[in-house]
Design a protein around this nucleic acid. Structure first.
Lengths: 335, 335
DNA sequence: CGGGGGTATGTAACCGGTTTCAGGCAGCGT
DNA sequence: ACGCTGCCTGAAACCGGTTACATACCCCCG
């Protein structure tokens, strides 16, 4: 690898000039700039990132902190790949690199250290509902930070999430329009933003339309398949079982479909089901899961944009406002 | 952030000694070591990665190069998340960081530059079948490199893949044991390792058992759902349609199931289907897809181990041999 | 023709570590 | 007492960039 001094000697200028060609080309004369650029291309010079980071204290790198310990938490992300693609694409367009940090693998607190050690310019946080204090502390650490599906705010910290409240209302509204009046829900964990917001929206729409909601129509789930199946079993055992169920996640909706089938019921003839997420499976499982679709790539893109805005903004800029992505209902066979 | 000089002054030793405490603790006396360690903990000293990388030319970081441009290639990885988890976990255990590089987003060649600019210690390559020359060139660049599902070898380059050949043979063997003699296959793209190997295995097992394979029983697919559906439609239109189909990927198997259903056939009563991959959907779609399961986490773990071994080995060590992960048949409802 | 202002470039300090090399010191044998 | 050895420590060069500051030069104007 050629160094800046070699390149400088090679074309008879000082290292400062070479540096300027790459960083503030407008201050160097046309002639020398072209001379340096040509020589750089010829000998294949590439500025060393570590040296640059050391000198400027900016790494042009953002960290993705993600709880990896799915053995313990059982957590899997429904759209991780899409988010990664969108995030990386948007960051690359601004010359930013992406470093993967994992709370599970790196140990508690370790990612905070990593952020300092690497001079990271910002962080995006994928929520796992762990409420890890070290993760939450990031919001106050002053480093630009955007959380996904986790309502974290601070002077240089914001979050992006879907319109879970509105999506849930739309689902309920749709079921009401189809004539249902006995509508139950299978919730996500209350400690997660989406879990809480979808339940709120569900309640809000029923209340707004004057439809009663018996307490036993709210069944607790954890976003995973088995919890949906169990919850549905319980719902079907009620004296007056619901005619429609809004599951706060597609996996649970699939579990609910299985429970209904096992109980000898047909979907949607005997019971309607609406999910949330629009995972791949939703389109493939017969008769097709009606669900609320999220803007999967939007998470990554919005996170990148928010981060870049915060990085470029002055230290004391007003805190950014949260980004709420729109949802949309996808009609398929289950409702 | 405290620097090494501050820490040195703080406890009355030289910077060299502090550095040794962190890198070669065995050469510094017990007394000073403890003194330095205590002071480091007290003032929260953390060595700066960039400075370290600059001085040693080793970054303790490995790059994950991954073709992100799925808009063009339509490529999605079935187990990306599991691979990421296993890879990151294994790397973290050895103190290595993970940097995401994307051929689609970073532009052609850009990841090669990134590798040099960042002094990456190694690279893992997730194949997308693109045959990108810059990617393939990595094998010769001398940097430790392990490819996933792509038979790439070199002095410091190896790969990990499933036993695609054996898995395919097992699938065929199972169908033969169930009494089938008219067995067709839906292949993956021949340019991909798994696509080619699964077809080879399919052919080999039939040949070994003396079962004839008409040319029209080999239908071309591309691993995605639609191709499976189309291929199956064609197969069912033959004069003597197969009684069983081995699809080289689960998505195609699901497509094949759809085509069979659309043609008024029942699976497995009229036609049996075996897939490959054991994606999540396989267990959930009725009546459950019989398929060949891969060691998903094994990809990440094996890649990390191979990489670490290469990094620690002397430059002229013999090239590592490829890692072939075992597969296993999962019996469900379709065969 | 001399001075002022603006522009392009160079010099050298600095970022925070690692590492070579030299030297101090204690212990030991003679 | 002397020299030798081995262990521990420190001084300083170095990694490859950035940037504050100084300087050289040119042009224009009074």
């Amino acid at each position: 690898m050629a160094t800046i001094r070699e390149l400088a000697r090679h074309c008879g200028v000082s290292v400062a000039t070479v540096s300027r060609v790459f960083n503030t080309p407008e201050v160097v004369s046309q002639a020398t700039r072209q001379k340096v650029e040509a020589a750089a291309a010829e000998i294949g010079y590439l500025p060393n990132e570590s040296a640059r980071t050391l000198a400027t204290k900016k790494s042009n790198t953002i960290g993705l902190v993600w709880d990896i310990d799915h053995r313990r938490s059982g957590w899997r992300h429904p759209f991780l790949q899409e988010i990664l693609v969108a995030l990386k694409t948007a960051l690359s367009a601004h010359g930013l690199h992406l470093l993967l940090l994992a709370t599970g693998a790196d140990g508690p607190d370790r990612h905070l250290r990593s952020i300092q050690r690497h001079n990271l310019d910002g962080v995006v946080l994928i929520d796992n509902g762990s409420r890890d204090p070290a993760v939450l502390g990031l919001a106050e650490a002053g480093i630009p930070c955007v959380a996904l599906d986790l309502p974290l705010t601070g002077p240089r910290c914001t979050y992006v999430t879907s319109d879970n409240h509105g999506g849930a209302r739309e689902a309920v509204s749709y079921l009401l329009a189809r004539g249902h009046r006995r509508i139950a829900t299978i919730t996500g964990p209350a400690r997660t933003g989406p879990g809480a917001d979808r339940l709120d929206g569900f309640r809000a729409e029923l209340a707004a339309r004057g439809v009663p909601l018996p307490a036993e129509y709210v069944a607790q789930g954890d976003f995973y398949l088995d919890s949906g199946r169990n919850a549905m079993r319980d719902l079907l055992l009620l004296d007056t079982p619901p005619t429609a169920v809004f599951a706060a996640g597609d996996e649970m909706a699939v579990g609910a479909m299985q429970a209904a089938t096992e109980a000898g019921l047909r979907v949607p003839a005997h019971v309607s089901i609406v999910g949330f997420d629009d995972i791949e499976l939703a389109a493939l499982i017969p008769p097709g899961l009606t669900t609320i679709s999220q803007d999967r790539a939007g998470f990554g893109t919005a996170a990148a944009e928010a981060l870049i805005a915060m990085i470029q903004a002055p230290e004391d800029a007003p805190p950014p406002s949260p980004i709420i992505l729109p949802t949309s209902l996808v009609r398929r066979g289950t409702a």
